[in-house]
Measured scan of single mutants.
Amino acid sequence: MGFKLLSKLLVYLTASIMAIASPLAFSVDSSGEYPTVSEIPVGEVRLYQIADGVWSHIATQSFDGAVYPSNGLIVRDGDELLLIDTAWGAKNTAALLAEIEKQIGLPVTRAVSTHFHDDRVGGVDVLRAAGVATYASPSTRRLAEVEGNEIPTHSLEGLSSSGDAVRFGPVELFYPGAAHSTDNLIVYVPSASVLYGGCAIYELSRTSAGNVADADLAEWPTSIERIQQHYPEAQFVIPGHGLPGGLDLLKHTTNVVKAHTNRSVVE
């Protein structure tokens, strides 16, 4: 069995187990497998329904001669939608809004960016022009300005110390501490036991640490421990890039980060 097929099978099995364990909360999309990078042309966006009122959005972007996937989250909030992270750029984010209108038909009224990198804030200006209120932590807003990236308009308070959590509509926002970046936030959907790890969490097929220019490698494993301790009931975990899975993604990420750190020390 090929690795790609095995990865998709694991996603399907995880979703099936969740649907059985929580039949009222989960209505997993039966329309197909989780979209992969090879299936999404740059400039297009796919939506994948995880649970009743919960979707991931998947886009792709060219970077350094390669094409990478990027995940975000959409959560229903009454007759409105909360968006977590842009679709990595203005063109993708405009396509995301169009796809949401086509498939869901509810307005996106608020959006949260989970850290300051372009795959999370690139497209904020498109959201703002569409009347979406954009939010991020003060740290993310400051770092985005320093980096020359787009800056969300509103500040999220109460997320300055490791372990801080605040309720934001249908989700809980959690600051686990520094990891992929010093400002990275985690998003949890309690009604569906869905954990969105953003770039602080890796997919299972990833074996290298990737972009760690703004990471705190020493603190990252401790931050992941905080996530595990705060959300032990999480059933569906979405990484910032690639295929979702279960809580095993947290341990896998820790292993990859520690291996990278150990290699760096040896070198």
Rank of each mutant, 00 (worst) to 15 (best):
M1Y: 15
G2Q: 09
L5G: 06
L5W: 06
L6R: 11
L6K: 10
S7H: 02
K8P: 03
L9S: 12
L10V: 07
L10W: 12
L10A: 08
V11T: 11
Y12T: 13
L13Y: 13
T14F: 14
T14A: 12
S16V: 14
S16W: 04
S16Q: 12
S16T: 10
M18P: 08
M18F: 15
A19T: 08
A19H: 15
A19W: 10
I20Y: 13
I20C: 04
I20K: 11
I20F: 06
A21K: 11
A21M: 05
S22C: 11
S22G: 09
P23F: 08
P23K: 14
L24T: 06
A25R: 04
A25N: 01
F26K: 08
F26A: 04
F26P: 03
S27M: 07
S30Y: 08
S30D: 13
S31M: 14
S31I: 02
S31G: 06
G32R: 07
E33Q: 09
Y34W: 09
Y34K: 10
Y34S: 06
T36N: 13
T36W: 09
T36G: 06
V37A: 07
V37H: 14
V37M: 06
S38G: 07
S38C: 10
S38Y: 11
E39C: 08
E39V: 11
E39T: 03
I40R: 09
P41F: 07
P41E: 09
V42S: 05
G43P: 08
G43E: 04
G43I: 12
Y48N: 05
Q49E: 03
Q49L: 09
D52N: 11
G53S: 04
G53T: 03
G53V: 08
W55R: 07
W55G: 05
W55T: 07
W55Y: 04
S56L: 07
H57A: 07
I58E: 05
I58Y: 05
A59T: 06
A59E: 04
A59D: 11
A59N: 09
A59F: 02
T60R: 06
T60C: 05
S62L: 09
F63Q: 04
F63N: 14
F63V: 05
D64A: 06
G65T: 03
G65S: 08
G65Q: 05
A66R: 07
A66C: 03
V67L: 03
Y68N: 05
P69G: 06
N71G: 06
N71C: 10
G72W: 01
R76P: 11
R76T: 09
D77K: 04
D77T: 04
D77Y: 09
D77P: 02
D77M: 02
G78A: 03
G78W: 03
G78H: 04
G78R: 06
D79R: 13
L81V: 13
L81Y: 10
L81P: 00
L82F: 07
L83D: 14
L83W: 00
L83R: 00
L83G: 03
I84G: 05
I84E: 00
D85N: 11
T86V: 14
A87G: 12
W88G: 02
G89C: 08
G89Q: 15
G89I: 01
G89Y: 06
A90M: 15
A90N: 04
A90V: 12
K91H: 02
K91I: 12
N92H: 09
T93Q: 12
T93D: 00
A94D: 14
A94C: 13
A94N: 13
A95C: 13
A95G: 12
A95T: 11
L97F: 02
A98H: 15
A98P: 10
A98W: 06
A98Q: 13
E99W: 12
E99D: 09
I100N: 00
I100F: 01
Q103P: 03
Q103H: 10
I104D: 01
G105V: 07
P107T: 05
P107F: 10
V108A: 12
V108N: 00
T109H: 15
R110T: 12
R110D: 14
R110W: 14
A111R: 00
V112T: 04
V112M: 05
V112I: 05
S113V: 04
S113Y: 14
H115M: 00
H115W: 00
H115G: 00
H115K: 00
H115I: 00
F116D: 01
H117D: 00
D118W: 12
D119T: 00
D119I: 00
D119V: 08
R120W: 01
V121W: 01
V121P: 01
V121C: 12
G122C: 01
G123F: 00
G123T: 00
G123P: 01
G123Q: 01
V124H: 07
V124T: 15
D125S: 15
D125G: 12
D125L: 11
V126Y: 15
L127F: 01
R128C: 00
A129I: 13
A129N: 15
A129H: 09
A130S: 15
G131T: 08
G131S: 03
V132G: 10
V132T: 14
A133H: 01
A133T: 08
A136F: 13
P138K: 03
P138S: 09
P138T: 14
S139N: 00
S139G: 08
S139W: 13
S139T: 01
T140Y: 06
R141Y: 14
R141D: 14
R142P: 14
L143C: 11
L143W: 10
L143G: 03
V146L: 03
E147I: 14
E147L: 06
G148M: 14
E150N: 02
I151L: 13
T153R: 12
H154Q: 00
H154L: 08
S155A: 11
L156M: 11
G158A: 12
S160W: 06
S161K: 04
S161T: 06
S161G: 10
S162R: 07
S162D: 09
S162G: 10
G163L: 10
G163E: 08
G163V: 08
D164H: 05
V166W: 10
V166I: 14
R167E: 08
F168M: 03
G169C: 02
P170E: 12
P170M: 01
P170L: 12
L173E: 01
L173R: 03
F174K: 11
F174G: 13
F174P: 00
Y175P: 04
Y175H: 06
P176M: 02
P176S: 08
G177F: 04
A178N: 04
A179W: 01
H180A: 00
H180N: 01
S181D: 02
S181K: 01
T182F: 15
T182V: 07
L185H: 12
I186R: 01
I186L: 08
I186M: 04
I186G: 11
I186D: 02
V187W: 01
V187C: 15
Y188F: 12
P190K: 11
P190Q: 04
A192Q: 14
A192H: 14
S193V: 08
S193D: 14
V194N: 00
L195Y: 14
L195A: 06
L195R: 01
L195N: 06
G197H: 01
G197L: 07
C199W: 02
A200G: 11
A200Q: 14
A200F: 13
E203P: 03
E203R: 12
E203Q: 04
L204E: 12
L204D: 13
S205E: 15
R206C: 11
T207E: 14
T207P: 03
S208R: 10
S208K: 13
A209E: 11
A209Q: 12
G210C: 10
G210W: 09
G210D: 05
N211H: 04
V212W: 13
A213W: 13
A215I: 11
D216M: 04
L217Q: 03
E219M: 09
E219V: 08
W220M: 08
W220G: 11
P221K: 11
T222L: 10
E225R: 09
E225D: 08
R226E: 09
I227A: 08
Q228A: 07
H230S: 15
Y231H: 03
P232F: 15
E233L: 09
E233N: 08
A234C: 01
A234Y: 15
Q235V: 06
F236S: 03
V237D: 03
I238R: 04
I238Q: 05
I238T: 11
G240L: 04
G242M: 04
L243D: 07
P244V: 13
G245W: 09
G245H: 12
G245L: 14
G246F: 12
L247F: 01
L247A: 04
L250A: 05
L250G: 10
K251G: 12
K251I: 03
K251R: 05
H252S: 08
T254V: 09
T254N: 03
N255R: 09
V256Q: 03
K258G: 06
K258N: 08
A259T: 03
H260C: 07
T261P: 05
T261G: 09
T261K: 01
T261L: 03
N262C: 11
R263M: 04
V265T: 11
V266A: 07
